[in-house]
Design a protein around this nucleic acid. Structure first.
Lengths: 285, 285
DNA sequence: CTACTTTACGGTATGCGTAAGCATT
DNA sequence: AATGCTTACGCATACCGTAAAGTAG
């Protein structure tokens, strides 16, 4: 077996052209390289260099060997990367969240239950979450609908109701109840990365301008200081996380009242039992 | 860079299941392996084993790592094989011969001219020789026809006439001249590996049984002791290599009189000049 | 008691850096 | 003179084998 370290040095020489340059690149000395290249030739039993008194050149075989050496070095690098990646994947629990609140509530619980593991959280509309569970891209997912699929095990883990946060005196505050359609035509502040909530953009409110905020701080700043309405939810309201001087009114449309379902592959139910046991219908509320 | 030697030992353990078995396989000691496996884990920064007091098992990551390691080991073995093969190819001169006599005559000359090189000689019908020169499968070839191809440089290097060797008293010995067709219906001894000469088997002699001999000694034994006719040629006759008590009669058909042409790629003419200069029209005769 | 892994210990050998030599440009 | 390869020498350290300890079946 040819020592990979010799190949590394050989490759450096092939790239640099001189031993001294390669030595500098590898943070070692010329004599060390001279000896290493001799050893490589000896180990292979093949001459790789054309030597003159003060010049070392690759022979024809050496030129080809340098090409071949790259493959070995890449294979070795790949090995290291793959082992590390696999090991990491075993220590990572990948979760898909369909909305911010489940992530906020469940992440600390996951961290407690799966101690020492890295939580990789993803947030988007949950349309693809079942597929991602099946393809093992996610270990766990929080959905806003029960998929009713034999391969997927679910447990209801909470509920969230959407509210609209308005300036006092806004005509809408006098409505007995508010529908999404009542908001049509307004400009509403919206935070990025809100999972499936993003779905009814422009659906019942085609003439609404959503003032999309990428930055959490900017969003908060604007909700507090501007007169624009913004969304909030039962989760925040029940915790008193309200913007002072605003009126929060529930929206009655059914899509603004959602249950959350924690899901995993039925085949992996046992693996995640502890976590499922820690969750119930009122975990998110 | 992960030391390939560690991977080798790791692979052995993965195959053998215990360190002691692997140690025996690798002709080393158990403690050496214990230490090597620790070092591998440390170099990678990844746990590859599940350790109990007196048992070492691959962890899940370890099982995968063992798979990946095979690729690296194969890459390293390939490297060694490819470099050696390439080096060997530079030191090998590959020649296609269309008949045994050119091989007999030219091989010693090649060995003299290309001192230190290995001669790889191939013998078969020369129909494909031009292609093989062009594809660099052959460096040189001896053909029995001048291909008249700009890419191929040729030089006539000799001549050979085919004779039939008969028992005295055979009716054919009284013919003024013999044609191949006169041999039709007879059983004739034939040696294997005779290059293009094999071509007229069954062509003008559809009813002839050729007693094909794979072994040179068997062939010689039979030519001497059996009454069967056999082929011989001007080359052997001019050197007195005749079978006692047999009558050798020339065959008049044109395909039994052939010239030989030494050939190489026109682009490599200079490279083989010395050899071409050593050869002329009477080299093979 | 046997089979296996791991730690401890002492010796060797592998490989490095410094220094010096020598050839070429 | 400057650059570059090679050889010589002394040293550090990495690795090996033997021996011994400890544990599970």
């Amino acid at each position: 077996m040819i020592d990979i370290h010799l190949l590394e040095q050989f490759h450096a020489f092939a790239e640099c052209g001189t031993l001294s340059a390669a030595a500098e690149k590898l943070h070692t000395s010329q004599p060390a390289l001279t000896r290493a290249m001799k050893k490589l030739e000896e180990d292979l039993g093949v001459a790789l260099f054309v030597r003159s008194k003060n010049q070392l050149k690759l022979s024809e075989t050496g030129i080809h060997a340098a090409e071949y050496a790259k493959d070995v070095l890449n294979a070795d690098r790949d090995f290291e990367a793959k082992v590390k990646a696999y090991d990491r994947s075993l220590k990572t629990i990948s979760v898909g969240f369909c909305a911010p609140v489940p992530q906020t509530v469940l992440t600390p619980i996951i961290n407690t239950v799966f101690d020492g593991m890295t939580v990789s959280a993803d947030m988007s509309d949950d349309a693809l979450f079942v597929d991602r569970l099946k393809s093992h891209e996610y270990h766990l997912a929080v959905l806003h609908e029960d998929p009713k699929d034999d391969e997927i095990f679910t447990k209801k883990c909470g509920h969230e109701d959407l509210f609209i946060s308005l300036m006092p005196g806004d005509p809408l505050t006098f409505y007995p109840e508010i529908h999404l359609s009542d908001l049509d035509g307004k400009s509403i502040l919206l935070l990025n990365r809100i999972g499936f909530w993003a779905n009814f953009h422009g659906d019942k409110t085609p003439n609404t301008t959503y003032l999309l905020q990428v930055d959490q701080n900017s969003f908060h700043e604007l909700t507090v200081n501007s007169g624009y309405p913004s969304f909030t939810s039962s989760y925040y309201l029940s915790r008193g996380m309200v913007v002072k001087g605003k009126v929060n009114i529930p929206i009655v449309d059914p899509e603004c009242h959602t249950d959350y379902y924690l899901a995993c592959l039925t085949s992996e139910k046992a693996k995640y039992k502890t976590f499922f046991d820690r969750v119930n219908e009122t975990t998110i509320r």
